[in-house]
Computed example of a mutant assay.
Amino acid sequence: MISIPFYIMLAARFYSVFISARTEKKIKEKGAIEFGRLNTLILTICHFLYYGACITEGLNKGALVKDDAVSWTGLTLYGLAISTLYYVIYQIRNIWTLKLIIAPKKIHIINKSFLFRYFRHPNYYLTIIPELIGIALLFHAWYSLFIGFSIYLIPLLIRIIQEERIMKFMFDDYK
């Protein structure tokens, strides 16, 4: 049944929120500064609304119990996104949060590994975007995908622009 792997991955996704909160507390104690609070709030609201819309749309269609190629493609994409999320967390574990928080230079080291060198913002492009597409496919939530995803992209692009500007301003070795 497709719902069991989804619930496991959903639990893993929610656990990332706890990882973020723990990291946030630690780095703020060391002098980290949060930027873009309003946009973070908007992104958080959009994330919950998007999930809610996809799940509601899907439940109305009976999609969670469907065992078809679209649902399995969505579940696979969702699973790859969650796996990549945990790899990103592993790569930048001492500074990774859901918020736009910049740690002091002595703590905030620019990651230059393969993933970060070839994908400027892997947390957004390789985790969030595939996660959102995956959950919409899983639930056959076409309205949510086309309307909700388009709306979600606005604060996400604002976040990426904010992060780029702040990182370039704060770190000389951020190119």
Rank of each mutant, 00 (worst) to 15 (best):
I101S: 01
V65E: 14
G36R: 07
F48S: 07
N111H: 12
I107R: 14
A69V: 08
Y87K: 08
N39W: 04
I33G: 14
C46L: 01
I109E: 07
K106N: 08
V88P: 05
L49W: 04
I27K: 10
G31K: 13
L59D: 15
A63T: 06
K99W: 02
N111Y: 09
N111G: 13
D68Y: 03
L49T: 05
K28R: 13
G62P: 12
L41V: 07
L80A: 01
Q91G: 06
R117T: 13
P104G: 10
G58P: 11
L100S: 08
T76M: 12
I101E: 00
A69I: 07
T56L: 09
Y87C: 03
E29V: 15
A32E: 03
K61D: 07
E34C: 12
G79Y: 08
I92C: 06
G79L: 06
F48K: 12
S71E: 07
I110N: 05
Y90K: 12
Y118G: 04
L43M: 06
I102E: 00
K112Q: 15
R93C: 12
A81H: 04
G36A: 14
Y78G: 05
E29C: 11
K112E: 15
I107S: 12
I102M: 15
T97M: 08
H47V: 08
F48N: 13
R93I: 06
L59R: 15
Y51K: 05
S83T: 12
A32V: 05
I89G: 14
R93Q: 11
G79I: 10
Y51G: 04
N39M: 01
F48D: 13
I33L: 11
Y50C: 04
I33S: 13
G31M: 10
F116P: 11
V70N: 05
L43T: 04
A63M: 05
I92P: 10
G36W: 02
E34A: 04
K28N: 12
N111P: 14
G58C: 12
P104L: 14
E29W: 11
D67P: 09
G74P: 11
K61W: 04
T76F: 05
L85V: 01
Y90C: 03
